[in-house]
């Protein structure tokens, strides 16, 4: 029974499940490092998922779908940027508006374009990059099966996400751009004083986070599910926010935290095969990632310190 649960696929699946969370969490990291709270990740992800799917349905090309998802994510996050940076709205409230807007807009367009609510037709998905032949029997073949499944079984965005986490980590901590970004979130006045535009820096950060959350949506639909369903993000944007905090506002930390949540999700799915054996209701497993999020947040806060100026609108002096 344990052998049915702990399989190479469990770990491979954890990596897959972690991907949309990690992309959104890294987006959240970049945004919050610049001093803007992005509670809209959930809605941006949903927007990307929808427009990505719509583009694939229109053109038949998954890669054009990915581009559409990224572009639409950045597009809807521009609304958040305009409201929270230029209009100095409350960032949490502006984010809530975007979440609702995304829910309404995707549902509305779904009915307008496809004539029905619910789920779209299946789309052409991105396939795993590698496809190795498995060698014959024996222990080596078994080891190879594990390795192949965990390392080589994935679709492009899964690998891209790992790359993004590393590049973002270096960019934030080792470059001039990153220094400025962090200063925007800690002491925007200082950035302004040396003649760098706070508004522009924050705009770039919010758009980047939108693009990443849009890419997360593309991963959900164009790589994992293969269709769009209304409200399919199901709280992932909020879990991503928690992953960002657990990862202490660093991209690699966000990625690792997302792996934990991804593992919980993968485990939850695997555990459902136990249903035949022990009568545990599936809903209790479905709660697992959400419960874990609360537990992790409860354990980590106090030791993790948010950027000092996060959530505060900046008024030009």
């Amino acid at each position: 029974m344990l052998g049915d649960i702990i399989t190479p696929d469990l770990f491979a699946s954890a990596l897959r499940m972690a991907t949309p969370l990690a992309l959104a969490a890294i987006g959240g990291t970049i945004c919050e490092r610049a001093g803007v709270v992005n509670i809209a990740l959930e809605g941006i992800m949903l927007t990307g998922a929808f427009f990505g799917t719509a583009m694939v349905l229109l053109t038949g090309s998954p890669w054009l779908g990915v581009i559409a998802a990224v572009a639409s994510g950045a597009g809807i996050s521009a609304v958040h940027a305009f409201a929270s940076i230029n209009l100095r709205s409350n960032q949490v409230i502006s984010g809530t508006a975007i979440n609702l807007l995304a829910l309404g807009l995707t549902g509305f367009l779904m009915e307008l374009w496809y004539g029905h609510p619910g789920t779209t037709d299946p789309i052409k998905v991105l396939r795993p990059i590698f496809n190795f032949e498995s060698p014959g029997g024996g222990a080596i073949a078994e080891a190879w099966r594990w390795f192949d499944s965990i390392v080589f079984s994935h679709t492009p965005i899964v690998y891209l996400t790992i790359l993004i986490a590393i590049v973002a980590q270096v960019a934030i901590h080792r470059t001039k751009w990153g220094l400025r970004l962090r200063a925007l979130g800690e002491h925007p006045r200082a950035v302004d004083t040396v003649g760098v535009s706070v508004y522009r820096g924050r705009w770039v950060a919010v758009l980047m986070s939108g693009a990443l959350a849009g890419l997360a949506g593309a991963n959900l639909t164009i790589e994992q599910v293969g269709s769009f369903t209304e409200n399919m993000t199901n709280g992932r944007g909020f879990i991503a926010l928690a992953a960002n905090i657990f990862g202490r506002w660093t991209p690699v930390g966000s990625y690792l935290a997302s792996l934990l949540f991804g593992f919980a999700d993968a485990l939850q799915i695997k555990l459902q095969i136990l249903r035949g054996v022990v009568s545990i209701p599936p809903q209790l497993f479905l709660m697992l990632p959400y419960l874990l999020t609360v537990i992790v947040l409860a354990g980590v806060i106090g030791r993790a310190v948010a950027p000092a100026a996060v959530g505060e609108p900046y008024e030009k002096g």
């Binding site: 807007l101 829910l103 609510p117």
Partner: peptide, 22 residues
Amino acid sequence: VPQKIVLIIQALVIFFVAAEEI
């Protein structure tokens, strides 16, 4: 007209209330 328009109007209300500072 799809009912979802109501959700959009809700979101717009929140947005305009938040942005009314201007």
